[in-house]
Structures are given as structure tokens and as C-alpha cells.
Design a protein around this nucleic acid. Structure first.
Lengths: 292, 292
DNA sequence: CAGTGGTCTAGACCACTGG
DNA sequence: CAGTGGTCTAGACCACTGC
């Protein structure tokens, strides 16, 4: 229990609500208003969840609550979330506490703050950089000089998950998954060959036609059409030589080493939502990484 | 227009700071004309430099001042910087403002906060992860299972900078640079071949013997012996095939593609301080990257 | 103009560290 | 125990946005 009345000396202290961080119970915070005052209708999702671990600062709890609202779809991608004042009132904390929670969510690219306008749910669609997760850059010229990538959907079919695909997606072997293969070209040169696997349940109805019809990043389509928001990803990178089929699709010979990029993309709660295996040509482009 | 108050300081020799935001009634509004202490020592780049005139928030200015003290070596690596209260007094701002500045510096891995102890200058030596900038992980087992890397210094010589080396290090072509070649082995298997170039002026006295004698990360040696603190780096990654010499040093054949990792490491003020070209074996290891 | 996020301050209390 | 960073609050004002 987080709200605790903990006072012995009540001089002038307000702080009727003293949030003591006790390792006592793990129940979730905020909603109980002390005393008869608020009797707020209570965030439904808020009262329900109680899986959060031991104790955490108030702003971390607020962060979890906001996260739950995001996950539940209470605020859609690119929509504004309530103002800091509103959230402070809703959670019965100060604006500064809400601010710190939002600060962290913004740092994790889940929210975007815009001064004078509000705080918005981040999306893969309205990025100034079209491909937020793509780290491939041309050797010469900037990102825009090549113009947008040309996308070619080779294939989109329903298959059963092999053991490694299942493991990566945290599903059972043999479950239905959608497998997509596509090629990205820059300046008319095939540069990226990607195979990707998506859980069949969540992506029911995804077809090659739908992929071809969509403009913009694939992740934006996943957001709007399938409610699958990729919030972070891990990549394992290796150098490989292509097999015959890969050579044909990329138009390279067998002596052209390629970058193998295996990406696992996660949605909220670190749930894996996509496995992607990419082959990148690095004779005209390079993979950029910033170390901090 | 923004009302600026150049708050010259009377007692402690603190750095003057632009008060871009006027909110305090207590302070007598010194008029625009610089008052009595117009001859303030020009030590503060903020007061002195108008090349970056824009009025940044107070905490950003504090951040710059702390950065300058770090760069000037006022606080050595792994040493504690003054407490937030002390810094607040020194800069004549509130503790909260100092805190926000330190928060950002900690987020950039320049400082490390330790509750109850203080705030410390980050270092490459005392990392729990020995190699902070190395993203190569073994396919099987965790980081520690392999034990520490075996380091073999092949060469360390003084050469003249070629045009591309000079460009990367922001020096003139033909200037002296130190060139080091080494091999890192894991579990007795040569895995990383690295060539690196360092500006000769800063690294005067670096020898192969000294590199061999040193225990721990090379960047730790650079910090303590040459005052060169690498704070961030950029990497360009490609897939390549090794030439004969590289094959011999790594013990691979000509059909083993390798990861080419070209790293530029920067010290304070985004000054490049090292160029490093690495070849990584990725048949037993992989390069890991986190996308956020 | 009102509403939003952004900055700054002041003060209180917490948790942790070490003498 | 004193000193440190960590959290939380309350209130003020600033800068930006859009009606």
C-alpha cells in the first residue's frame, strides 16, 4: 500500500497523504483517495492490476499507469494524451511527479512532447526519419539524396512456426505465423533483403496486397491496422556470404559479403512481436551505430 | 525580448550565468548595463562567447560549466565532484537546477551518481562491464563465461597521418600519429583484429611495451596516462572479406566474412581522439545493438 | 487570449552511505 | 550521526501554440 498516513507530528504539515515506500504489499498505488475526499471513480485498469513488484517511487508507479493506458489503447498513436495537469489530478499527485514519469517515457520514445501543444503518443508514421529502426546509411550523400526506398513485396504467406521462430516470438512451435519477404532498393539498386515473421493471431488478415498498397513504414501499418506497436528492438549483426537465392534477389555475386541483421522487435511489456532477418549490402551503404 | 541579467558575483568566484528567466523579486534588477563588475574574468565561456548566443536554460548553462570543469581536469576520473548543494552555492542557482544539469550528464555517461556517496566522474576503468564500447558477445554463454580477453599487441609505431586518418582525427595530413595494431582473443581464439590511430601530440610516449604492461581496458590507460577521455563514439559497420595478412592474424580462411567496424571515438566537445578499424569474427560471436 | 509544456525555486522528507 | 543523492510538492513565471 502506498498511500499511508504516517504522521505523528502534525504541526502544519499538510501531507495528509504520505506516500511511504514500504516493501509491504505489492498492491498498486494511487487510486485510493485518502478519506472521503475525492471518491474518484477510479481508473478501472488502475485498481485492477497488482502485479507490480515491491516498492517504487511514485513517479515510477505513474509511469506504469501511463504505460498501461498506452497498452490498453486508451490513447491512440499520434493522439494527444491528457495534459500534465489533468494527469496530476487523475492520479492525485503533483504535476512535477507526472512530469518526471512523462520525461522517462519520452526518453524511451514512447511519448513525444511538443511545447505549447501537448504530449503525444509516439508513432512510426510521423517520424521525420521514415525508418526509425533502420540504421543503414549511404556512403555518399545524405539520407534524402536517394529519395524514398522502393519496396518490393516478394511474398507473404501463412506458415507454422519453426522452433527458432517460435522461441523468438515466445509462442509455441507449430503455431501459425505470417512470413513476409521483401526487398528494399535505393536508387534502383536492391540493397536490403528481409524476411520477417509475425504472430498469426495478431496479424490475421495481412496479405501481400495490403502490404503493397500501404505507403510508408511497415511498422506504421502494423500500428494502425493491427494494433501492434513496436517500441524497441534488439539486433544481432554478423557478416555472411549469401546463398544462391539471396544472390539472385540482391543481384550480387557469391564473393560479396553481406551484413546479416537479425532483429527482434518488442511491443509493450517487452513482449516480442516480430522477428526479422535482413541482409544488407554494405558496399554502397554502411550500418551506423552510436556508442554512448 | 528577453530580459537578461548578467549576474556578477560578489563573494565566491562562481561563473557568471545568464539569467534568461527573470522571476525572482528579491534580486534587485540590475539594469542592462553591466554593473560594477564589468571586468569579470573572462573564464566563463558563457559570458565570453557569443558565438553560441542563444539563451539556453539555466540548467544547460550549468551543464556547460560542469563540462568545462571536467574537461579542464578540475575533477579527475573516478573522483567525486562537489555535492549538489555545493555546486548550487557555487553557481548561485537552486539545487534543483544543478540536479537537472547533472541528470543530463549522468544520462550521457559522463558522471555517475551514487546515492548516499556523491556524484563521480565516469571512467572506463571501473566499469562493471570492462569494455564499455565493445558490442561483441559470444553466441553461447554469457559475457563472463569466456573470461577476460587475451590481448596481444602486434605493433605500435609512429607514422604520418594519411589523408583519411587526418580527416577522421581532425588534424593535418602528414602530422604524427601513433598507430597500434592488436589482436583480442577469447577462449584462446583470435577474434578481433584492430588497428587504431591516435594523435601523436596527445599520446607522446605511448609504446607497445607500455600497452602490454597495462592491465584493463586500453581506454582506461588513455585516461590515466594521457588525459584522453573517450566519452562517445560512432561506428560504421560493414561486411568484408579479409586479405592475406588479416587471415593470418585471425586464423581464418578467405571465405570467412568478417565484420568491419570503423570507430571514431570522441572526447569532450565532440573532438575526435581516436580512429579504430576493427575486424570481428562473427562465426562464434555477434555484434549486439539495441534500438530504442 | 487561454492552454500547453519548459524552467526555476524553495522546502520537506526519504533512502542510502560511512564514520 | 551528518552528509549525500532521490523523491515529492507547491507555486511562480517563461515560451510556444492556436483560437
Amino acid at each position: 500500500m502506498i498511500h499511508q498516513i504516517f504522521e505523528t507530528d502534525s504541526r502544519l504539515t499538510s501531507h495528509p497523504v504520505f506516500r511511504a515506500h514500504l516493501m509491504n504489499t505489492a498492491s498498486t498505488p494511487i487510486s485510493e483517495s485518502m478519506g472521503p475526499a475525492g471518491a474518484e471513480p477510479g481508473g478501472s485498469a488502475i485498481a485492477a492490476s497488482n502485479s507490480t513488484p515491491a516498492f517504487s517511487p511514485l513517479y515510477q508507479q505513474i509511469k506504469v499507469l501511463i504505460l498501461q493506458s498506452l497498452q490498453a489503447g486508451e490513447w491512440k498513436p499520434s493522439a494527444a494524451i491528457p495534459s500534465e495537469m489533468d494527469l496530476a489530478a487523475r492520479f492525485k499527485v503533483s504535476q512535477g511527479t507526472v512530469r518526471k514519469a512523462i520525461d522517462e517515457l519520452a526518453a524511451e520514445n514512447l511519448l513525444v512532447r511538443r511545447q505549447g501543444k501537448g504530449t503525444f503518443v509516439a508513432t512510426h508514421a510521423e517520424q521525420q526519419v521514415q525508418y526509425r529502426f533502420l540504421r543503414l546509411y549511404p556512403d555518399n550523400g545524405d539520407l534524402q539524396s536517394e529519395g524514398p526506398a522502393q519496396r518490393q513485396i516478394i511474398d507473404c504467406k501463412r506458415v507454422r512456426a519453426s522452433s527458432d521462430i517460435a522461441r523468438a516470438l515466445a509462442i509455441r512451435q507449430g503455431e501459425a505465423v505470417l512470413q513476409v519477404r521483401r526487398v528494399l532498393s535505393f536508387a534502383a539498386t536492391p540493397t536490403i533483403l528481409e524476411d520477417l515473421w509475425l504472430p498469426g493471431a495478431q496479424f490475421k488478415g495481412l496479405t501481400a496486397e495490403r502490404l503493397r498498397a500501404h505507403q510508408g513504414p511497415m511498422y506504421a501499418l502494423f500500428e494502425t491496422e493491427f494494433g501492434a506497436r513496436m517500441v524497441r528492438a534488439d539486433e544481432k549483426i554478423r557478416a555472411v556470404l549469401p546463398d544462391a537465392e539471396q544472390r539472385a534477389l540482391l543481384g550480387v555475386n557469391g564473393q560479396t559479403p553481406l551484413l546479416s541483421v537479425e532483429r527482434t522487435a518488442f511491443t509493450y511489456n517487452d513482449a516480442p512481436m516480430e522477428l526479422r532477418r535482413g541482409l544488407y549490402r554494405t558496399d554502397t551503404h554502411y550500418y551506423r551505430n552510436a556508442l554512448n
